[in-house]
């Protein structure tokens, strides 16, 4: 393979590792994208998890809290921090092909490894990391349903022992953003087609433009992108942090948000992390082929000059009336 090949859209799922065949997952469009805590515990018990450069199954923890992994993690799991590892340090963008290859090589992850990602807060950051892996076309990357909290709630094993992975040779693959990432101009061109706003109701209506005393993280304008449906991200998650059932997700996105099969959808939040959680649900659990995450999200839209905004609870129309 050309080592600088462009990442291919990961439509072709030749999953290399057995999938979790549980009944709940079977109802989803892509059951191979989720694994349960029971399944993972079995793989660990069978000695399948490693990060030795040749491992077929690698477990990655990705949290909001940069120190949480160090307090205890799933045995064998390596840490990837969404901010310090996956974001470019200077430009508001993700690492490039070289940076990603170096990161994954250093974590002992090869291109054909099956990667299971989990994290805190119902997998916010884990879903975000999974989305970034997908920008690079990493083929077999899955989420641990329920994430870190469920693993702990079930009293499963944790360790503070940090693995020292044997270096892998991850190829340099250029990111292929277009299929799953929307930029501001893409969103402007998308107006009129479905949008999902996953922020809190106060952010959606424009009552709040930023967290108090956090002006740097806020926006000059409050409200939402015209016609966007408000479905706060957490509604896709059950009490235990697992994704809701296929039926419940359909009620939410097809019923309440009004999406129809085959729709081209863009999801956004404040910086693109909560909307990764929703992106995953739409793309892999409900099977929408064209779903993009707008990672510029409200911190870009709410500060941009002359972009259309709707305030209040109504979705608004496009063109604005």
């Amino acid at each position: 393979m050309d080592p600088r090949a462009l990442a291919q859209p990961s439509e072709r799922h030749t999953m290399s590792y057995p999938v979790d065949g549980s009944e709940k997952f079977a109802a989803y469009a892509h059951p191979e994208r989720l694994v349960s805590t029971e399944w993972l515990a079995e793989q660990i018990a069978a000695g399948a998890v490693g990060a030795d450069g040749a491992a077929r199954l690698v477990v990655v923890e990705s949290d909001e809290d940069v120190l949480l992994y160090e307090t205890g993690h799933i045995p064998g799991a390596v840490k990837i921090d969404w901010h310090t590892d996956l974001n470019d340090e200077v430009t508001r963008d993700y690492v490039d092909g070289k940076g990603f290859a170096e990161l994954l090589s250093s974590k002992g992850i090869s291109r054909d490894a099956t990667v299971v990602i989990y994290g805190d807060k119902s997998n916010w950051w884990a879903a975000y990391a999974l989305w970034v892996f997908t920008l690079f076309g990493h083929e077999d990357v899955r989420l641990l349903d329920g994430g870190r909290d469920k693993w702990i709630a079930e009293g499963r094993e944790l360790t503070t022992e940090v693995p020292s992975p044997e270096r892998a040779e991850y190829p340099v693959i250029e990111r292929n953003d277009a299929p799953i990432r929307a930029f501001k101009d893409d969103v402007l061109a998308h107006l009129g087609k479905p949008l999902i706003d996953v922020r809190s109701p106060d952010e959606y209506t424009g009552k709040r433009t930023h967290m108090p005393a956090y002006p740097e993280e806020g926006a000059l304008r409050g409200g939402h992108i015209p016609t966007a449906a408000s479905i706060p991200w957490a509604r896709a998650a059950a009490e235990d942090g697992t994704y809701r059932s296929r039926q419940e997700l359909e009620d939410l996105y097809l019923g309440e948000a009004g999406l129809t099969e085959g729709d081209d959808v863009v999801a956004y939040c404040r910086i693109g992390e909560r909307s990764s959680h929703t992106w995953f649900a739409l793309k892999y659990l409900l099977g929408f082929d064209t779903v993009r995450n707008y990672d510029g999200s409200w911190t870009e839209w709410g500060n941009a000059v002359r972009v259309p905004i709707v305030k209040g609870e109504q979705r608004g129309t496009w063109p604005l009336s």
């Binding site: 809290d65 940069v66 120190l67 949480l68 160090e70 307090t71 805190d120 909290d149």
Partner: peptide, 9 residues
């Protein structure tokens, strides 16, 4: 909470 070690730190 213990789940927020950075904040606790």
């Amino acid at each position: 909470p213990a789940e927020a070690p950075t904040t606790r730190g």
